[in-house]
Design a protein around this nucleic acid. Structure first.
Length: 873
RNA sequence: GCGCGCUUAGCUCAGCGGUAGAGCGGCUGCCUUACACGCAGUUGGUCGGAGGUUCAAAUCCUUCAGCGCGCACCA
């Protein structure tokens, strides 16, 4: 047994142990195992991603669940992998190639060559995050690592497409979609983020055709789309304008067009809000979803004035053509002003949709796209509302339900190259949907599928579907899913639907949603703000265990997390505390892995510790059931620090230093027994240090990872003894407080005196322990109250003789302050007990409790009054 | 606009019907033979405001305010 170093150094331990675990194949899941299965699939991070604190939180929670399941004797599969992340990856590679001067645009390379570059890039830079997860201690089955573009996985994706096509759930249509002008692709509604924008509301006039000096005034935020207007709409119920319906107006832009080509109808439409702006709406069917519908209803032509990159085209007129849409807005307003048609511009705040990835305003655009009607939607909705599939925290189920209630067809095609190509083939007018090419004269659809169209199959496509594999049989449905609430629609909801559609069963039983990590100012962590710490740096500073524990301790269920590095420091300190507790035990001689404290004579302190351990183990169960990880961490922290170290070890020192003590063996056995259990309870949170201590102390012959989870109720102790320990601790607390009030620290020279009062007075051994707790040279029993500062304590009156230091006036004041506190407490209880209604309606055990408090306060007052007399003569 | 969440000590949060708690910070004193990544003590709150229910409310209900988030085709 090697001797533990005075301070825990994670660097000496973590990599070494992790290599051992992996080399031994500790996390290989065996689908043929007889043990009950437990499975988690990792939310696949982007291949191009690097580890963030969000990943640390998310994966630590998964690791805690996986490790605990192993200890509970389950066959655990934690399946890792990465996502090809279509837009994100393609953008990164494109940008890199541009920066290197290799291309100006992806078209310079062509599809095939470009994809080759992406694959190369993926081989070189991809999967960094997987290596980083290992530093965290993630117990994934790396032999099963999957990638959403693996060939087997790709086949799954395409088969699902073909199947849904055949079921007529997938269809092609020319529709208004969200278009990202930077990535030049369609997006789903979920990829559009509404942001508040401060802009201007432009009021401009439109002459009514055939009338002189008659104008309609229109309010718009987008004057640049005026050249695309093909109608003016008013509400038919609007008395101001109803009479104009059927007439025409003259669109002011582009001014160089002859007037007859700018003549547009005035239509009546219920959609127009009479109370907004001027009550007159310009209709641009090509660039606004609502206008598109109006256009269809009234069979209006559509004029596209913005191209796929967000620049104005020739239809916008000579002034605007070639301008970026933002610049065109200003230019169009200038044009109106020059024409004398701009009435006013007023500041205006509105909601504008932004592309999630490129962070630019999306452009509603009419185009040919593939859409999916969601399958198994009804079942997927009710499984959550009926709580058969449970969300933690529960309130997210409402968000889910609301989305499911308003399901819109999913635009699944993307005008990108990196991704799963749509398995649809064309030859002339013929269309075929199948995985393989029907022949060399067939041309495949150029688009790829939305990344989420592959990730939604993750829970079963990673386990060999559509084959009926042993893995699927053993591990599907998976048990827990841990993810962020930001992808509840993107991923969670869709996985549930795919699970029902293709496995006939829900993909997971519980979903735990983590909080978002924010900085001390409450801002989201992001690279651009520079407030996102590198987890690897944190691991180097505090150790993986310290980081894990520190982060989890401040991660309340369902709430966002204010990140503070101080907390990671505390995680490290805690690891060190645990280390030293074990080191101290080691210094007393070898540990006994089969230690059983009930076979030995014990001090009351041992019984007290065993009682607290039992309580801890019982408390943990409901906390795990509710996924209350921060509270679990808190409970473990408190037990180790306060119960084991501050109370038990301090009192055990008396035994340890006396080889002849009759309770020495019992105290050692208690220490071993409790440490053995506590290390196992801590292991899911702190895998490295617990393994190192477990093996070094010899509490187990083999790895702690496959030991067992302590069973509740195995601990036995004597409640009377535990209570006695409590008496001693409380007496010591009172004494320390008294000492503290005189600004003194403990010293060997200091002595306390005790006038005993309890039924069972302390033994000489107890007094030595009390002295140890008080950090003084000794406590002696006396029969007559000395003229010295006193505090009432459970064992009796505790005196601190202070020769020459005692000021009677100050001492009297101190005692009076104590009396006042006791009187306040007594008065509060008295008030309650004096209320007859309260006595009548409150439960008797509560009344008894209040009586007891009242009595104790009264007694304390008496004792203090007695003492005060000594200083008044 | 609809929905959800939060508001408790200087900070981060727990408590969710029966004497206001923890950690950190601040202050004071200690290198006490496991740990200064430590030990001991101490400071500090009319539990966002206003009503109500109850013998009893930080805790339940109503309402208001501030903050945050999600959803939503008001140009």
């Amino acid at each position: 047994m090697s001797e533990l170093a005075p301070a825990y150094d994670p660097a000496q331990v973590e990599d070494r142990l992790y290599r051992q675990w992996i080399d031994r194949g500790d996390y290989r899941a065996n689908p043929d195992s007889k043990k009950p299965g437990y499975a988690i699939v990792i939310p696949p991070p982007n291949v191009t991603g690097i580890l963030t604190l969000g990943h640390v939180l998310n994966n630590t929670i998964q690791d805690i669940l996986a490790r605990r399941a192993r200890l509970l004797g389950r066959e655990v599969l934690w399946l890792p992998g990465t996502d090809h992340a279509g837009i994100a990856t393609q953008t990164v590679v494109e940008r890199t190639l541009k920066k290197e001067g290799k291309i100006r645009h992806r078209d310079d390379l062509g599809r095939e060559e470009f994809l080759k570059q992406v694959w190369q890039w993926k081989e070189k830079h991809g999967g960094i995050i997987i290596q980083q997860l290992r530093k965290l201690g993630a117990s994934c089955d790396w032999s099963r690592e999957r990638f959403t573009m693996d060939s087997a996985y790709s086949t799954c994706v395409q088969q699902v497409f073909v199947d849904l096509y055949q079921k007529k759930m997938i269809y092609r249509g020319r529709r208004m979609v969200n278009w990202c002008p930077v990535s030049r692709t369609a997006l789903s509604d979920e990829e559009v983020i509404m942001k508040e924008q401060k802009g201007l509301l432009y009021h401009f006039r439109v002459p009514v055709a055939g009338e002189t000096e008659k104008f309609l005034t229109i309010a718009t935020t987008r004057p640049e789309t005026i050249p695309g207007d093909t109608a003016i709409a008013v509400n038919p119920k609007d008395p101001r304008y109803a009479s104009l319906i059927g007439q025409h107006a003259v669109r002011p832009l582009p001014p160089e067009l002859p007037e007859d080509q700018r003549r547009i109808p005035i239509v009546g439409d219920e959609h127009v809000d009479m109370t907004f702006g001027t009550g007159v709406l310009k209709v641009t069917p090509a660039h606004d979803p609502a206008d598109f519908l109006i256009g269809q209803k009234h069979k209006l032509p559509s004029i596209e004035v913005i191209d796929e990159s967000g620049f104005m085209n020739s239809h916008a007129g000579s002034v605007l053509a070639g301008l970026d849409r933002a610049k065109a807005r200003v230019a169009a307003a200038d044009q109106l002003r020059e024409l004398g048609l701009l009435e006013k511009e007023e500041p205006y705040v509105n909601q504008v949709g932004f592309s999630e990835r490129a962070d630019v305003p999306v452009e509603p655009r009419l185009s040919e796209q593939w859409f999916l009607k969601y399958p198994s939607a009804e079942k997927s909705r009710s499984i959550v509302s009926s709580k058969k599939l449970r969300f933690f925290p529960e309130r997210w189920s409402k968000v889910y339900d609301h989305w499911m209630e308003n399901l819109q067809d999913w635009c699944i095609s993307r005008q990108l190259w990196w991704g799963h190509r749509i398995p649809v083939w064309y030859r002339g007018d013929e269309v075929r949907c199948q995985v393989d090419s029907p022949g060399s004269d067939w041309r495949q659809d150029p688009d790829v599928l939305d990344t989420w169209f592959s990730s939604w199959l993750w829970p079963f496509a990673t386990m060999g579907w559509p084959e009926k594999t042993a893995e699927l049989k053993k591990f599907y449905p998976t048990t827990d899913l841990v993810t962020g609430p930001d992808i509840i629609f993107f991923w969670v909801a869709r996985m549930i639907m795919a699970g029902f559609e293709y496995m006939g069963e829900l993909p997971f039983q519980n979903v735990y949603f983590t909080g978002l990590i924010r900085d001390a100012k409450g801002r989201k962590l992001s690279k651009s703000l520079g407030n996102s710490p590198d987890p690897l740096d944190l691991i180097a500073k505090y150790g993986a265990d310290g980081l894990r524990f520190g982060l989890l301790r401040i991660a309340p269920q369902g709430a966002d997390i204010r990140y503070d590095e101080k907390q990671m420091e505390e995680g490290r300190n805690f690891a060190n505390k645990l280390w030293n507790a074990c080191r101290f035990r080691q210094q007393q001689g070898p540990s006994d892995p089969a230690a059983n404290p009930s076979r030995h004579a014990r001090t009351p302190f041992s019984d007290s510790l065993l009682a607290q351990l039992d309580k801890l183990e019982r408390d943990l169960e409901p906390l795990y059931a509710g996924y209350e990880f921060s509270q679990i961490a808190q409970a473990l922290y408190g037990f180790v620090w306060d119960e084991f170290c501050a109370r038990f070890i301090e009192t055990a020192k008396a035994d340890f230093m006396n080889p002849d003590s009759p309770t020495r063996a019992g105290t050692l056995a208690t220490a071993d027994y409790v440490l053995s259990r506590v290390l196992r309870l801590l292991h899911p949170f702190m895998p490295f240090i617990t393994e190192e201590l477990w093996l070094t102390l010899g509490l187990g012959k083999t790895t702690i990872q496959y030991s067992d989870w302590p069973k509740i109720g195995e601990v036995s102790w004597d409640p009377a003894q535990a209570q006695m320990a409590e008496t001693c601790y409380e007496t010591a607390d009172a004494g320390r407080k008294l000492r503290g009030e005189f600004g003194l620290s403990g010293s060997a020279k200091m002595k306390f005196q005790l006038v005993p009062k309890a039924k069972t007075p302390p033994t000489p051994e107890d007094l030595r322990t009390l002295a140890k707790l008080l950090q003084v040279g000794g406590v002696e029993l006396v029969s007559i109250a000395p003229k010295a500062p006193m505090t009432p304590a459970p064992w009796g009156e505790l005196y601190l003789p202070l020769e020459g230091l005692l000021d009677p006036v100050k001492e009297k004041a101190r005692l009076e302050k104590e009396i006042l506190a006791a009187e306040t407490s007594r008065a509060r209880e008295n008030a309650k007990l004096a209320d007859p209604k309260m006595l009548e309606k409150a439960p008797p055990e509560k009344v008894a409790e209040w009586r007891k408090i009242e009595q104790e306060a009264s007694e304390k007052i008496l004792r203090l009054r007695e003492q005060i007399k000594l200083f008044t003569t």
